[in-house]
């Protein structure tokens, strides 16, 4: 019983120490550690916010087994850049409007942030953002990919996404006739 009590106290002390820190340490699937501001992590990721609130953040590096080091580095980089950015007028909703659309165009720095990523890094970052519940990062990365799809034929889209065509020739022909309007510039 004594030992258990001691353990409990140690746990409590560790939790208090953890709560006092203003950064959290995240560990990628390949074992690399990254530090990120606790405030930014909690604000930008619903999953990390839940872990911080629930006290399940590990001081020695919270395991994120689904995320590789390159993607996690980009996640942390995004959090840091976001913390330092000043929201533009576009992000401040106006009270005088017919209605406001929920999706906000990426900021200039967000555009630059995704533009410098390789194709693979961008795809990995979408998965990471989705896993961590980072709505804004999902917006920015998915917006970039959806721009890559615009005006492309199904063949070209398959190439972008590395997808095999599982339609038969007859099926494709039937749909193309029905949806000729969607293929006006092919």
């Amino acid at each position: 019983m004594e030992v258990d009590k001691g353990k409990g106290e140690a746990e409590e002390t560790r939790k208090v120490a953890e709560a006092d820190r203003d950064t959290v340490t995240l560990k990628s699937s390949d074992g690399k550690l990254f530090e990120v501001s606790k405030e930014a992590a909690a604000r930008l990721s619903t999953v990390l916010a839940g872990m911080i609130a629930g006290g399940s953040i590990d001081d020695n590096g919270t395991d994120l087994k689904q995320i590789g080091s390159e993607a996690l580095e980009n996640v942390v980089d995004y959090c840091n850049k976001h913390a330092n950015s000043i929201p533009s007028a576009a992000l401040i909703s106006s009270s005088i409007s017919f209605n406001t659309a929920p999706f906000k165009e990426p900021e200039e720095w967000e555009r630059k942030f995704v533009d410098r990523l390789s194709h693979d890094a961008l795809f990995d970052l979408v998965e990471a953002a989705n896993f961590l519940g980072m709505e804004r990062l999902l917006d920015v990365t998915c917006h970039k990919i959806s721009e890559m799809m615009k005006g492309k034929s199904p063949d070209q889209i398959r190439e972008v996404f590395n997808i095999k065509n599982d339609y038969t020739k007859e099926e494709l022909e039937e749909i193309r006739q029905e949806l000729a309007w969607a293929f006006y510039d092919d």
């Binding site: 889209i157 065509n165 949806l179 969607a182 293929f183």
Partner: peptide
């Protein structure tokens, strides 16, 4: 631009 959604539906099942 609904044509983009239609094209996407032809990528794979």
């Amino acid at each position: 631009e609904p044509e983009n959604l239609m094209r996407a539906s032809l990528v794979c099942k």
